[in-house]
Computed example of a mutant assay.
Amino acid sequence: MKNFKITSFVTISLFLLLVILDTTVGIALWWYILLLILWFTIMALGSFNMSWGFYLKAFTSNPKVTQKNIAITFDDGPNPEYTLKVLDILNQYNAKATFFCIGEHIERYPEIFKAIVAQGHAIGNHSFSHELMIDFNSTENWLDEIKQTDNAIHKLTNRKTTLFRPPFGVTTPKLAQALAVTEQQVIGWSIRSFDTVIKNPERIVKRITKQLKPGAVILLHDKQPNVLPVLEHLLQVLQKQDYQTVTINELLNEH
């Protein structure tokens, strides 16, 4: 939010400077257009890059980690076709992960959600609807999305999650205002697998392993078929390289 405020202050200052110059010596209209384009570009880039901390502070990795610990995270579940199979693979390799779940899916597949929790994995809030236009929500609508999912989680586990991951990884001033109320930790990632775009499992694993380092946070999705071969191969690579997979909560607390 600090970066957003600084950018807004600088933009307003430049606009006032242009107005002063325009009234004294006269300037071309394209100077105003250029400032508008620059402002819009910075706002958009800030929305799509959580590591910038533009609108809010987000945890994307832990560079202070001294051991070879990383966190694998899954978005958009629980999924009736793949989540339980993901849990089986994680159990086979004695690996822990963090699942950022959609509230509607929690209500639709409560037994799968409870299986995630029962096996010792961490849970995060990933909004209630994850609808396409969610990033245009008002503060009130964001609060509804977050609280509905919190309630769904609490109903099944008697717990309240402290973790939130924005849908599509996009942050906005309205979301920042809502999270200031709920006081949840925003979780991003340092390694984006693009598993929703790249279909070839080998390419996905190669993309991930090229960026591996202690403290990394990996983004996967437990809603599509390629997650199964990707996860198994990835865990084999991590095992060979002596990496340990931990939950986001554990990675956050390492110093």
Rank of each mutant, 00 (worst) to 15 (best):
L34V: 15
L34R: 10
N69T: 11
N49R: 08
M133Y: 13
F74H: 09
V86H: 01
D75I: 04
Y82I: 04
Y109F: 13
F54V: 01
T60F: 05
Q148P: 09
T98I: 09
L90C: 06
H154K: 13
D75Q: 07
F128A: 08
N94L: 02
W31Y: 15
S138R: 09
E145I: 02
H105A: 11
T60E: 10
I72K: 01
I106K: 00
P80N: 09
A122I: 03
H126E: 06
D76Y: 11
E107Y: 02
V86I: 10
F48Y: 15
D88M: 12
I116C: 05
F48A: 14
L132F: 14
F74Q: 08
K155T: 11
H130P: 05
V117S: 07
E131P: 08
F128C: 13
T139Q: 15
W52M: 14
L34M: 15
L34F: 15
T83N: 09
H154S: 13
K155P: 05
E131S: 15
C101Q: 05
M133S: 13
K155L: 12
N49E: 14
F59D: 13
V65Y: 01
L35V: 11
Y82G: 06
T41V: 09
K147G: 00
S129L: 12
L45V: 08
W52K: 03
D88W: 09
T98M: 03
A58N: 11
L87K: 02
K96I: 02
I106Y: 05
D88E: 14
K85N: 11
F74V: 08
V86W: 00
E140Q: 15
D76I: 06
L35N: 03
A44G: 12
S51G: 14
F40M: 11
Y109I: 08
N94E: 14
S127A: 14
K64W: 14
F54K: 02
S127V: 00
D144E: 08
V117M: 03
T139S: 15
N49I: 09
I153N: 02
S51D: 14
T98H: 06
T73K: 00
T83G: 01
G77S: 07
F74N: 04
I106S: 01
L35A: 12
H126G: 06
A115G: 02
E111D: 12
A44S: 08
G53A: 06
V86E: 00
N141K: 08
L35M: 07
D76N: 05
A152R: 00
A44L: 11
Q119W: 04
A115I: 06
E131G: 15
E131M: 13
I33A: 15
K114F: 03
D144S: 14
Q148E: 11
L38I: 10
S138M: 10
L45F: 15
K155M: 07
V65N: 06
N79S: 15
Y82L: 06
Q119S: 07
R108V: 13
